[in-house]
């Protein structure tokens, strides 16, 4: 029996035409949309929604709380919102294997791009989260995300300390994986026929961020664009399930301004510096008697 109660889904806010900023949240909201589960979305951007002290995505229903996307999908499947229902056992098996491939090869690439790549994390995502979340939580979550990413890199490559080398391994693994996915997808609409499955969900949530988020340093953007059928899959899912997600962005616009006004800011700084330096010198001179109000005879 489908449950008639509403599910509550707590997510990080979306931006840059993405329904949510990070892959796990994207996965859960996309799954809910495809399964047509009756969810109310609560955005995780104010104190009122932050009282749970857990990392989104969260699913609240009756007294059950699911704390990660896997649990959410499993719980929704138990409640008869199963989008893999029409797969036969062999397809289901292949779907599981490919999902694992995506998880183990693309997730490190995403985490690396989000949090390890220094420019992306300090100049971009940090600012985004700082503006999105209220004050103690933004430090807490950005710190948490970064630690998690560092731990992931350390456990994947325990004896490698050079960031560039790690990046190369990760990108090579991601390219292999995208290659496999692209050849599996071919010209199909979705991976299995005309309806999306959990595999499409996983691919979307790890590929879309590379395409959409304007990272300062995004080598994966060009990599992903080598496979137009994957890009088209992302577009197709966007059109079908997120037609109303705003294309512009809430927080980047501020940043664009900050970027374009970068020179002006430095002019202002120069003026202030010059003024203060002159007044300091003048004050010093006046106090020591080099300068007096009197005109010499």
């Amino acid at each position: 029996m489908p449950s008639t109660d509403k599910f509550q889904l707590v997510l990080f806010e979306g931006d840059f035409a993405l329904p949510a900023i990070e892959p796990e949240s994207i996965k859960s909201i996309l799954y809910c949309k495809i399964a047509e589960a009756p969810v109310t979305v609560r955005l995780f951007n104010s104190y009122r929604n932050c009282a749970l002290y857990k990392t989104p995505p969260l699913l609240l229903h009756d007294k059950v709380t699911c704390t990660d996307s896997e649990q959410i999908v499993a719980y929704l499947k138990c409640n008869n919102f199963n989008i893999d229902r029409e797969l036969d056992p062999k397809q289901r098996s292949e779907c599981l294997a490919l999902k694992n491939l995506v998880q183990s090869k693309l997730k490190p690439a995403v985490e690396f791009n989000y949090w390890i790549e220094h420019r992306n994390s300090t100049e971009f995502l940090n600012i985004w989260f700082m503006k999105c979340l209220p004050i103690p939580l933004n430090y807490f979550y950005t710190g948490n995300f970064r630690n998690r990413a560092v731990d992931l890199m350390e456990s994947l490559y325990p004896n490698e300390t050079d960031k560039d080398v790690i990046k190369e391994y990760i990108q090579r693994a991601a390219i292999d994986c995208l290659q496999s996915l692209s050849s599996r997808l071919g010209n199909g609409e979705f991976f299995y026929g005309s309806k999306p499955t959990t595999l499409d969900v996983a691919v979307y949530s790890y590929v879309a961020p590379f395409i959409k988020i304007p990272f300062p340093l995004n080598e994966m953007y060009n990599v992903v664009n080598m496979w137009p059928n994957l890009v088209n899959l992302v577009k197709r899912i966007d059109n079908l399930y997120f037609p109303n997600v705003p294309k512009g962005s809430k927080y980047i616009r501020l940043e664009d301004k900050a970027k374009t006004t970068d020179d002006e800011v430095s002019y202002a700084a120069i003026v202030i510096l010059t003024l203060s330096a002159t007044s300091l010198i003048l004050g010093f001179a006046y106090k020591n008697g080099y300068l007096t109000g009197k005109i010499p005879d």
Partner: peptide
Amino acid sequence: DNDEKSNLRAYMSLIHSV
């Protein structure tokens, strides 16, 4: 063929990760 090779890679990653 390529499809089967990607299949093979996927199942190997399944075994490693589960």
